[in-house]
């Protein structure tokens, strides 16, 4: 069993020592004695389809409500089943022993479980590359393959003050100091993740294009983009509604932009300049800390 505090959430991880490279998890030592949630990962010989009322389905997954009150997410290929209690404080992930893509499933469903639990605590995981630019938080979000990691790398190359907090799903949390972007171990295959939090000053949704242009987003477009990228449980209306209200709160407090870019080093230069022009980051000499 391991314990870790991720974005203020202390998690007890049972049976998943192999998950999350040990060095990444070690960067998130437990800050509290009492865990806010427990995630157990089990491997079994064979998984049978769960019984119960169907709550919803999407893609490869179906959600059912079992007689014991637990919600079960089951992949149609029967390689994974995830059992959640009502407030996501107790989650069990069952994997087919030796099943294909077990590591991917383990990573994905542990991330989802923590994302769901965070929502009940007023925070959220956001599919994005979370950056610190001279101590200012900027999240680059957008659909898979849009170039978040590429642009994050280009920004680091363009400006040594840029640090990657997390490549895949940093957390956004509301604290007494405001809205913060927090590093998490959810950085995919990338090694870059930091147990750090910085004030979140901009959310940038990426769009592939021929030029490099940063434009403010209309609130409606920003809400749509946020809801596509916040990790939220679709089958549970109440918690899903919390994600909507959280997104609305962010829209009122954090500037949201669309950045059409060509994925070249000049895109990074253009974004840094545009963020400074828009008052997100301070204008300064590269390398200033």
């Amino acid at each position: 069993m391991r314990r870790a505090t991720i974005a203020g959430l202390t998690v007890e991880l049972c049976g998943c020592a192999q998950w999350l490279h040990a060095d990444k998890l070690a960067r998130f030592p437990a800050q509290e004695e009492q865990a806010s949630m427990r995630i157990t990962v089990e491997e079994t010989e064979a998984l049978t389809p769960p019984e119960g009322d169907t709550l919803g389905q999407a893609g490869a997954a179906v959600w059912k409500r079992g007689a014991d009150g637990m919600t079960v997410l089951a992949r149609r290929d029967q390689r994974v089943q995830v059992r959640f209690d009502a407030d996501f404080s107790d989650v069990t992930i069952r994997l087919e022993r030796g099943g294909a893509h077990a590591d991917v499933h383990r990573y994905r469903y542990v991330m989802q479980a923590i994302g769901y639990r965070l929502l009940t605590q007023g925070g959220a995981l956001l599919h994005s590359a979370g950056l610190s630019i001279r101590g200012i938080g900027v999240a680059l979000s957008g659909r898979s393959g849009v170039g978040k990691s590429t642009l994050a790398t280009l920004l680091c190359e363009a400006d040594p003050t840029v640090a990657v907090l997390c490549e895949d799903a940093p957390a956004v949390c509301t604290t007494a100091d405001g809205i913060e972007l927090c590093g998490t171990p959810f950085c995919g295959d990338d090694e870059r993740c930091e147990n750090a939090h910085v004030p979140l000053r901009a959310l940038v949704f990426l769009k592939q294009g021929n030029g490099n242009r940063l434009s403010p987003m209309a609130p409606r477009d920003a809400l749509q983009a946020l809801l596509e990228n916040i990790v939220r449980p679709y089958y549970q209306d109440a918690v899903s509604a919390q994600a909507v209200d959280l997104a609305l709160a962010w829209i009122g407090r954090i500037p949201m932009f669309e950045f059409e870019n060509d994925g070249t080093p000049s895109a990074a230069e253009a974004l840094l300049a545009a963020l400074a022009e828009n008052g997100v980051t301070e204008k300064g000499v590269k390398g200033d800390l």
Binding site: A58, R220, L223, Y234, A241, V244
Partner: peptide, 12 residues
């Protein structure tokens, strides 16, 4: 504006 946002299965 006033917007209607789907949640749960409706969002899918």
């Amino acid at each position: 504006s006033v917007v209607v946002v789907p949640v749960g299965q409706a969002a899918i």
